[in-house]
Design a binder for these strands. Structure first.
Lengths: 197, 197
DNA sequence: AGCAAAATTGAACGACTGCTCAAGTACGGG
DNA sequence: CCCGTACTTGAGCAGTCGTTCAATTTTGCT
């Protein structure tokens, strides 16, 4: 080899993620991307293959970041339920100011991708399933630790959390009503996970 | 006037709605539309002004249809809760085969529209708010009829229904798991609205 | 029947799309 | 220090986008 003065792939993915997250896959043009990540077409296509290829990596980048945030919330709280609630609060009520969109990028992609982009759609579904599986693992641990009744079904609770999080993020985008969303989160964690009660 | 041999506006809107609902606003080209509604560009632009103008009417057409479906479910059941549950079941478990998308067109539009199409985004938010208000009215009636505790907040319950319906539709698109969604609906109407129990 | 007005048609416009590739640049190894 | 190679550049391709408009067809009224 002879030349290695390359771009910072992590930094590029972060910027691309912000743009795709804000505008969506279709509405983001390759020229928008060129400007956002400061690369010329040739370099982009050499590094990522295509717009779809870049988006594919962006989806993974986003999902990894979400998983890391969830783990951070779990580590920061003693009880599993408190960790989950902290995660919901972080996603819905905190990061909202500098986040590119109120919505989940995966849910947004799930919404706009079609059979024409079957691979990306499949990728999105897989990553969403991994998120749900992640929730399930945490709920399972809470049951094992005696935080939740042994009758609680981790699979069902994880599904409910997934449904709620996506629904709440949509609601936030629809109304911008942080107060209402906060109340909904409180009700969710009182009603859905009646912890040591 | 001299010529009135026009297209059937209702029929055109129905076909346009199906296409937009399936592909979304951005991914639907005017040529797709021309074919779907069997009209040439000049006629379309004379009748609807622009792609956005047509989409605007499509959003209303869809929202009206949803409101009609909800009313139909309420009329078909004695108790308010049974009507709401029938509506959830119809949207989530029945019509799915010939519906253009598992998702709510309003939620889908909310997801893909941006500041560039501010009017359409505002329209979408308004129609979603009307849907929530519709839920609220029904819940209020249920409280007045003694079906629900007087402590139940109609506004809160309506918000929860809105969040759940959008979340469940997303989940159905993500997984295609009708069985799981059915279970989630059952749990929702047991847990959220503990009627005369 | 014949006319004026409304409705329809389809070719075409400029702008934009995702993407390619020949030419130019910058670096590590000898 | 210079060569060879990996990387970068940006003009430009073929195709599609939303939209316009002169020409044509279709209609209701007289």
């Amino acid at each position: 080899m002879a030349n290695t003065a390359k771009f910072d792939r992590r930094e590029v993915l972060e910027k691309a993620t912000r743009l795709f997250w804000q505008k969506g896959f279709h509405a983001t043009s390759t020229r928008d991307l060129q400007q956002a990540i400061d690369m010329r077409p040739g370099s982009i296509y050499a590094a990522f293959g295509s717009k779809s290829g870049l988006f594919r990596e962006v989806l993974h980048f986003y999902a990894d970041d979400m998983a890391r945030r969830l783990q951070g919330c779990m580590d920061g709280e003693d009880a599993t339920i408190d960790g989950l609630r902290a995660f919901f609060r972080q996603i819905l009520l905190q990061g909202g100011d500098n986040a590119p969109s109120e919505l989940c990028l995966l849910a947004k992609s799930l919404s706009e991708l079609e059979k024409d982009e079957a691979e990306l759609l499949q990728e999105t579904r897989t990553l969403l399933a991994a998120t749900e599986e992640n929730f399930r693992r945490h709920v399972e641990r809470a049951v094992a630790a005696g935080e939740l009744s042994e009758q609680a079904s981790p699979a069902l609770l994880a599904r409910q959390l997934q449904v709620e999080l996506i629904g709440l993020r949509s609601y936030l985008r629809a109304t911008g009503d942080r107060e209402a969303v906060g109340e909904l989160v409180d009700n969710l964690f009182c009603g859905l996970l009646p912890a040591g009660r």
